[in-house]
Amino acid sequence: MKARAFSYVRPVTIAEAIDAFAAAGGEASYIAGGQSLVPALALRLQAPECLIDIAHVEALRGIERQGGRLRLGALTRHVDAHDDPLIARYAPLLHLAAPHVAHPAIRNRGTLGGSVALADPASEFPAMMLAMGAEMEIAGPEGTRRVPADAFFQGVYETAIEPGELLVAFHIPVAGPHHRCAFDELARRRGDYALVGCGVMLAMPGDVVEDARIAFLSVGPTPVRARAAEVALLGSRLDEAAIRTAQTALAEDLDPTDEAHVPATMRLHLARVLLGRLLGGLGAAT
């Protein structure tokens, strides 16, 4: 289980990184933490000719509040998503989801940028970016652009990032005191990819839901917004009836595929149970 041979470059600026990709004729991969890429290379599922190590590009770092947004550099590590006080305060879904992402040693190396750029539909952070309405800052040969999370995830491991482009940072609307957030997932073992996971972010200045964002992982080819469930909650007080309506509405939101050992009906059922528990917890939190 050894990777195919490749060459290695270590740029220190975004421009150098993007140039390196072009110089490799496109047969290159960026690597940051490498926690998903290295196994794929070891299994020879991927075999780029060149590995571009972006871990030393300073412009990809940093955690700072910029007005109503929290800017997270793409190199922000999973462990920081949990430990950093700014993230815990302004992007609590990342803080809540982080302990469920793989295991401590993976979280010490893995980066948010790597996780979101890979867009594994079973991953926690991509779904949370969707739940938080984050914007992805992407750099390419033509400059940088921003893509909202709703338009970012396009298919299984497919995102708005074009070949050669680089995910630079996340811009996340900051959560305020009126937000209630919850995350949980159902995984066979701690740190496993979940059978289903869900992040909920509700704007509740009083006891009425004014805005709701709900995103699921492991229920389809991409992380999935549960828009019908969100609508079902608007204006509600998170009472049992509203929660049941939201659970029922998931049938419109989620279309998991039937798999040999996990039938689609099971995923939908678990998604409903999970959503019910999360909303129940948030309702009880008043």
Binding site: L195, H261, V262, P263, T265, M266, H269, L270
Partner: peptide
Amino acid sequence: MTPARLLKALGTI
């Protein structure tokens, strides 16, 4: 005894 098998046994799915 996986969750899928137990949910089937329970008649849930």
